[in-house]
Every structure is written in structure tokens, then in C-alpha cells.
């Protein structure tokens, strides 16, 4: 029952969000949902005059996603959170905690993935 969803791909993540910014949308948050062993859904939520608009990105787990924090600075926190909990890496983060926002440095697990993926080395 989510309305106004636009599907995007890894190439035009930053471009589409920049367009949203030009249109005067306020950044709300990102939601990450695990689909299966290899892919996740990342939803970008934006709000303008109480109307929500969403961008849906279906990304593979092992390749880094371009960060939108250069466009919307506020996104750095939630991107770091997804990095911690799902193990998805974001490229070009404004402030990169390198998976230590919530977790300890030695933690290699991705706690929110149902199918546990051990990250031996960050794929950046």
C-alpha cells in the first residue's frame, strides 16, 4: 500500500536523489529489506508537503552502493546504520564509521541478515 514508488538502479541512485532535492523534497530515511541470499531492497523515502515519494533500489549484497550523503548530508547516519546491520557498503560516505556505528570493530557478522553473511573483508 505504498504509493508513488519509482524503481531505480545502481547507476542513477545519485542522479535521481539529486533530482528530488531540486524538486524540494525533504529527506526522510532509507529502509533496507533483505529479499534473499544475494539481494536487498533499499527504499529511499522523501517527503514534500506531507506527500511521501519513494525510490526503490534492488541491489546485490556484494557490490557497493553509491552514497547519497553528498546530496542529502543527513543520509550519512542511516547509510552507516545499513552498513552495520546488513553489511551493504556505501561508496563516498560523508562520514564513514566503517561498520562501527553500532557494532564493535571485531564484529564481522551482519546481524539483520537472516541468511548470515560473514564479511571477511569489506568489498570497497
Amino acid at each position: 500500500m505504498i504509493e508513488h514508488v519509482v524503481s531505480i538502479s545502481l547507476e542513477n541512485v545519485v542522479g535521481e536523489t539529486a533530482k528530488m532535492k531540486v524538486e524540494g523534497y525533504r529527506f526522510v530515511t532509507l529502509s533496507c529489506v533483505e529479499i534473499d541470499e544475494t539481494t536487498v531492497d533499499i527504499l529511499y523515502h522523501f517527503d514534500k508537503d506531507f506527500q511521501l515519494k519513494h525510490l526503490r533500489l534492488t541491489a546485490p549484497k556484494d557490490s557497493p552502493v553509491p552514497s547519497i550523503s553528498p546530496v542529502y548530508f543527513a543520509a550519512f547516519l542511516v547509510e552507516n546504520e545499513i552498513q552495520d546491520l546488513f553489511g551493504i557498503r556505501f561508496q563516498g560516505l560523508a562520514i564513514d564509521y566503517d561498520r562501527t556505528l553500532y557494532l564493535e570493530e571485531e564484529v564481522k557478522k551482519t546481524p539483520f541478515c537472516k541468511y548470515v553473511v560473514i564479511k571477511t573483508k569489506p568489498p570497497l
Binding site: 526522510v28 530515511t29 529502509s31 529489506v33 533483505e34 548530508f73 550519512f76
Partner: peptide
Amino acid sequence: LERLRVRTPTFANVPALL
């Protein structure tokens, strides 16, 4: 539920501190 995601108000307000 398959996924429950909560974005709390302080989470959005932290960038204000920076």
C-alpha cells in the same frame, strides 16, 4: 512481520548537531 523499520525523530535530528 518480515521487516519492521523505525526511524525515530532523534535519528533525523542528529545531523542538526553537526
